[in-house]
Amino acid sequence: MSAKPAARRLRPLIDGPVPTRLKLGALWASVLFLYSYGDYFELYAPGKLRAMLASQTALGPVSQNALLGMAALMAIPSLMVGLTLLLPARPNQWANIVLGILYTGIMLLAIQDSWPFYKFFGVLEMALTLLISWIAWSWPMQPVPLAITSAAK
């Protein structure tokens, strides 16, 4: 073993701060992966495919409006991946706070009377959406210029 790899292991890595926008976008992407896997695994639950073939959902019969509503419900987190990078800071902050809390509540309702695997995914999803809200709430602010703070006194 040469001295070069040992010296490399001893040097600390540069670990710069991750921008808030990037954190939020990555968390929304993670939430979407969990949604996808939870819904996919749910297809293996006994009777689920039979109900789907009979045009039944957990909320009632399948209709164009019901499918449009479900599509809109899933489109919002999908759009938030990109919107967190594109929206101005203040609307971005509020969108992430409100939608993070809203999707936490939706999942809290969705996991009622569900199988343990779905509750597992749901708890992870709720933890991430609450984290999204918290990161957005604690979004770093620009320092107030000294001239403004002096004038306020």
Results as ranks from 00 to 15, higher is better:
G16H: 11
L24M: 07
L131Q: 12
P88C: 04
L109T: 14
G47D: 00
L43R: 10
R11N: 14
T20V: 11
G100C: 02
A58Q: 08
P12G: 12
L13G: 11
Y103W: 09
E42R: 03
N92S: 14
G47R: 02
L34T: 00
G60L: 06
W28R: 08
L86V: 03
L24Y: 02
W94P: 08
A58M: 09
D39S: 05
L13K: 12
A7H: 07
R8Y: 12
Y44C: 08
G82E: 03
F117C: 06
G60R: 03
L22Y: 13
V81A: 06
L131T: 15
W137E: 09
A147Q: 14
K153D: 15
P77Y: 05
Y103H: 06
G38Y: 00
L34E: 00
Y44L: 05
G122Q: 06
L67K: 03
V81T: 03
W137K: 11
L34W: 03
Q56L: 02
L67A: 00
A72N: 06
P17T: 07
L131M: 15
V123W: 09
S138Q: 15
N96V: 08
A147W: 13
A54E: 06
R50F: 06
L109A: 14
L87M: 03
L86W: 11
L99C: 04
L34S: 02
P116S: 11
L124M: 15
P19H: 01
G38F: 09
L146I: 10
L43F: 06
P88R: 02
V98Y: 12
I76N: 01
E42T: 06
I111H: 03
A6P: 08
L146R: 15
A151C: 08
L53Q: 15
A136Y: 08
L99N: 04
L53C: 14
A29K: 04
T84I: 01
G69W: 00
V98I: 15
L10K: 05
N65V: 00
A72P: 03
G122E: 08
E125H: 04
L87Q: 00
S55R: 12
L83G: 08
D39R: 00
F120N: 07
G25I: 00
L79E: 01
A6Y: 02
V31E: 03
G105C: 14
D39P: 03
I132D: 04
Q93R: 13
Q142Y: 13
M126K: 02
V18E: 13
A26L: 14
R8G: 13
A66V: 04
M1G: 14
F120W: 12
I111K: 01
K48T: 15
Y44Q: 02
T20M: 11
K4L: 13
M80Q: 14
V31I: 04
M74Y: 10
L59I: 09
R11G: 11
